[in-house]
């Protein structure tokens, strides 16, 4: 059975935990030099309409571990620049017998449109401000390796929540698995009507991360200044930066996470980013294993 991986929001809990277990299993096998399932005849199309190196490479690496072939569609060189619609691009890939699709797109909901026309599995690698499910899975795996359970954990997501698909996917996943989610940031960067999102909103950092077991920092886009959402990078950093000073409000042993790319000295300071509490590199590493699990699961594989 083929499945899509588009939104954590619409996924049942047992599918989420199944994926996390599978990712842990793949990680253990790869680290022990054992065999993982081979999906040799499967070709994956990587369709990135927005620039991304880290996520694309992570999917490529996951495909490589599973023996799959991945095919890159650099969108600036493709027919999209000749005015082809997304629907026709998807139909073309379908009839070129690409088996599965990894897509990143600037528009929220675009992977649902792709799934409607593609027929095979579609994996969302980030759609607009909607979701980035594999990032949330990587983050959850990283937390689980250190905290054993998400149940009852206090997790604060700090920064530009309104424009962040990482924040949304993480909030859904953590909430579904029992964590207490807090969304922290200036009111201009928090959703003005958050009632249908999981979590509580906080506009003050100290309160928002007080007692936190995990802090997930979000990248601050510089264009938010031009849009009038923040006054300056300096003021933002003075109010919301995660550093040794502000970490005092969190629980001892609090994990500091960041989906990258990092603005050192803005949302997180240099020392903290390289410090003992940071698990940023582990998030990147786990990204490969959750994407392996995602491929395997999307093509109908089950946990062994």
């Amino acid at each position: 059975m083929n499945r899509n991986l588009i939104a954590i929001r619409t996924m049942p809990n047992d599918e989420i935990t199944g994926l996390l277990d599978l990712a842990a299993e793949f990680k253990a096998k790869i680290n022990a030099g054992e065999d993982v399932p081979s999906m040799k005849k499967t070709v994956i199309g990587l369709l990135f309409f927005e620039n991304s190196t880290r996520t694309r490479v992570s999917f490529e690496q996951a495909a490589f571990y599973l023996g799959m072939r991945s095919s890159n569609f650099a969108t600036s060189a493709s027919s999209m620049t000749k005015g082809e619609t997304l629907k026709d691009t998807i139909l073309t890939l379908r009839h070129e017998r690409i088996n599965g699709l990894v897509m990143r797109h600037k528009s929220s909901g675009a992977p649902m449109l792709a799934a409607k026309h593609f027929g095979g599995p579609v994996l969302n690698a980030g759609d607009g401000q909607h979701e980035h499910p594999t990032q949330a899975l990587a983050d959850a795996l990283t937390i689980l390796e250190r905290k054993t359970s998400l149940e009852g954990l206090n997790v604060s997501i700090v920064g530009d929540v309104e424009h962040s698909r990482v924040a949304r996917s993480n909030a859904w996943l953590l909430d579904k698995l029992g964590a207490n989610v807090r969304l922290v940031g200036p009111r201009t960067l928090l959703p003005p009507h958050p009632s249908m999102l999981p979590g509580e909103c906080y506009d003050e950092l100290e309160e928002g991360i007080s007692g936190a077991d995990v802090i997930i920092c979000l990248r601050l886009q510089r264009e938010r200044m031009a849009e009038g959402m923040i006054s300056s990078i300096g003021e933002y950093a003075s109010l919301y930066q995660i550093n040794a000073d502000t970490l005092r409000f969190a629980n001892p042993g609090c994990l500091v996470m960041h989906p990258g790319p990092i603005n050192r000295g803005v949302e997180i300071d240099d020392v903290t980013a390289d410090g003992d509490s940071a698990v940023i590199n582990q998030q990147v590493e786990n990204g490969v294993f959750v994407r392996m699990a995602a491929f395997y699961w999307c093509f109908g594989g089950q946990q062994s």
Binding site: G128, P192, H193, S195
Partner: peptide, 15 residues
């Protein structure tokens, strides 16, 4: 519409 649904879907709202 800028509201709870737009926040959930990650679509930019019209206030």
């Amino acid at each position: 519409n800028e509201g709870a649904v737009s926040a959930m879907l990650g679509l930019q709202g019209i206030p």
